[in-house]
């Protein structure tokens, strides 16, 4: 019996040592030279492999960073300036700081504002629905609510709000990798510059229909009335195809446009409640605030609660 055990141990050990030797020589022979800096750079990248930089993964991005002369057009939105600074140190180059960004959903067509006109019963995918139908509401520009964006988000920064039927961006988790921007067939996501305290003001609508039609199909649609355009002191608002757009780079977050909008299509997030004497606040305490604001505030709060 003991001889069997001994034989087994000896033969397996010999086999193991032989294999190790073979593997060692094969590994030596087929070794490919690689710039060691690629590994170093890769270690400093977020390893999310999200594709936000435009490359297939962090490794590919690291290779591109090491090979290229300058950092033009190479930026990791997930790691942000901090990561790029570290990479620049490794490679001995200058990092170009970029403004951090965050995704916003340019649609506020919650179920209450935008009544359904049909019932969609196909495969649960925005891409499939939008290939065949404008949507199940009167607005063919708005959110379909099937969550393609939630599916592609690698950072748990998006979730569907069951009440509004719209996705909600969690600003803390959002890395502006742009996956949702690509996934949304209605092109509703926009990467906007992050302001302090994550404040933002934007037009939450993409409806290019004429005012009356847009308004009929959705209570909070931008009707293209140009009131905000006229009131903006910084020329940050442009009008195109019956639709207002606020340029985040020019916008100084003065909030003048927000009360002008007759349909509450302009959304402000992250601001303290307006001062007591302003009529807007009276409305708010009366519960008469535009439904859009209420819901956006609610969802904002729910995000905050989650963070805590």
């Amino acid at each position: 019996m003991s001889s069997v055990v001994l034989f087994t141990i000896v033969s397996l050990s010999v086999l193991g040592v032989l294999s190790a030797i073979i593997l060692f020589f094969v590994a030596q022979k087929f070794k490919v030279f690689e710039d060691p800096r690629i590994d170093q750079v890769e270690e400093n990248l977020p390893a999310a492999n999200c594709g936000g930089c435009g490359f297939a993964g962090c490794r590919n991005f690291a290779e591109a960073l090491v090979k290229s002369e300058s950092f033009d057009g190479l930026y990791c939105p997930v790691g942000g300036n901090e990561t790029m600074e570290k990479v620049a140190q490794i490679l001995g180059r200058e990092a170009v700081a970029q403004d951090p960004k965050v995704a916003v959903l340019r649609c506020n067509g919650a179920c209450d504002f935008r009544p359904k006109t049909n019932q969609y019963d196909g495969a649960s995918s925005c891409a499939i629905e939008s290939a065949l139908y404008g949507g199940d509401t009167g607005c063919q520009y708005g959110c379909l609510g099937l969550g393609d964006c939630v599916d592609v988000c690698n950072f748990d920064a998006l979730h569907m709000d069951p009440v509004t039927g719209l996705p909600v961006v969690n600003d803390t988790n959002c890395t502006a990798c742009g996956a949702c921007v690509d996934a949304c067939p209605k092109d509703l996501f926009e990467l906007r510059k992050r302001a302090k305290k994550d404040r933002k003001i934007y037009v939450a609508c993409r409806n290019e229909d004429k005012g009356g039609i847009a308004r009929k199909n959705c209570e909070v649609a931008c009707t293209g009335c140009t009131k905000c355009f006229k009131v903006c002191p910084y020329e940050a608002i442009t009008m195109n195809n019956n639709l207002a757009f606020i340029d985040a780079d020019k916008c100084k977050l003065c909030r003048k446009c927000v009360p002008e909008c007759p349909t509450n299509a302009i959304i402000e997030i992250g601001f303290p409640p307006p001062k007591i004497k302003e009529p807007a606040d009276v409305e708010a305490t009366d519960g008469k605030t535009g439904p859009a604001e209420t819901i956006m505030k609610e969802s904002k709060e729910s995000i905050n609660n989650k963070e805590e």
């Binding site: 359904k116 006109t117 049909n118 019932q119 969609y120 019963d121 196909g122 495969a123 499939i128 065949l132 139908y133 199940d136």
Partner: peptide, 8 residues
Amino acid sequence: KLITISPS
């Protein structure tokens, strides 16, 4: 009732 839409 709302009419149903779906792909073929």
